[in-house]
Amino acid sequence: MQNHISDLYNQVINEHRKYPRNKGLIEGYKTLHLKNPSCGDDVTIQVNVKDNVIVDVRHDGTGCVICCSSASVMSEVLMGKTVEEANEIIDDFYELIKGNMPEDEDRLEDAIVYVNIHNFPPRAKCATLAWRAAGALLLGDEGEQEDE
């Protein structure tokens, strides 16, 4: 199958690129800075959890369209979820990126737009960078990390 660039950059991704949601950091939140040194993608993610519920997700950074839009989409998807739900959604997202449709695809909400990434394997890292930072934050990691 011939992949085309428009399969990758669809309307939702473009919307989030132009008008990122929940962008900008808030002092006092648990913060993780993650970067992919080979291409320069560089994101900082914050997750604020109260009574086991994610009440805020913030992001900031620089990088390609896939990386930045994915951070924005993620911030909306994870907002209001319990920590357990969020972890499951993050796992579903990793599966989606590998080309495996999760059982409950509705749960991914707008993140489903990255369904075609598996046809562009070099871009999988771009799509998952923010999600890995959020996943690590929910596990209790904080600070600086370099993606491998």
Partner: peptide, 11 residues
């Protein structure tokens, strides 16, 4: 961003 452009080159 160069990585976005690179996907077009790859195609």
């Amino acid at each position: 961003h160069p990585h976005d452009a690179a996907t077009i080159f790859d195609e």
